[in-house]
Amino acid sequence: MTAIILERVVIERGPLRLEGDLRLGPGLHAVTGRVGSGKSTLALALAGGIRPAAGTVRLEGIGRRLWVGHDPVVHLTGGTVAAEVASWRVEPDSLLSSLGLADRARDDPFHLSLGMQKRLVLGCALAARADLLVLDEPFASLDLPARARLERALTARDGTTVVMTHADRHLPPGTTRWRIEGGRVRPEGP
């Protein structure tokens, strides 16, 4: 069982202040909120990139945390698409064929379109099997079939998965929903 628990946490970043008291157990969680509400800030705090100003963050059964930002380019380090996959310690051949990128293995990842770069980075992140995976706007830049494949991959994953998203129609049934409003992170819906 994996869980990340935020106990009376206060996160401050620039003009933004967020409060939350939440437990994110195994499975898929989605955090929605309007533009500028603090989704990316919460993502960084969950991934350990920002230390809360108050409160505690506890991890249960979570060793490896992985964060993927909205812009795939910040994650690209490989000189070729295949080298990029290998840099995530993932075997390139089978991953690239499942992503529809087998014929681009020797290309510079910077020559891919933004949507293809996004598929590549998300595919690597999913294959890297982190206990906690935090994805900031993962559906942005993906076409509709790619969004549906991502939805299935997120549901099939072990561990705790958190997506920050505007595209809430792409969330599979069973997703635990949270919403940021007025500086507070709250559970949403039934």
Partner: peptide, 14 residues
């Protein structure tokens, strides 16, 4: 009057 650094992704788009 804001600094670009403090804008979220969506706000940068706007």
């Amino acid at each position: 009057s804001r600094s670009v650094r403090t804008l979220s992704g969506g706000e940068r788009g706007v």
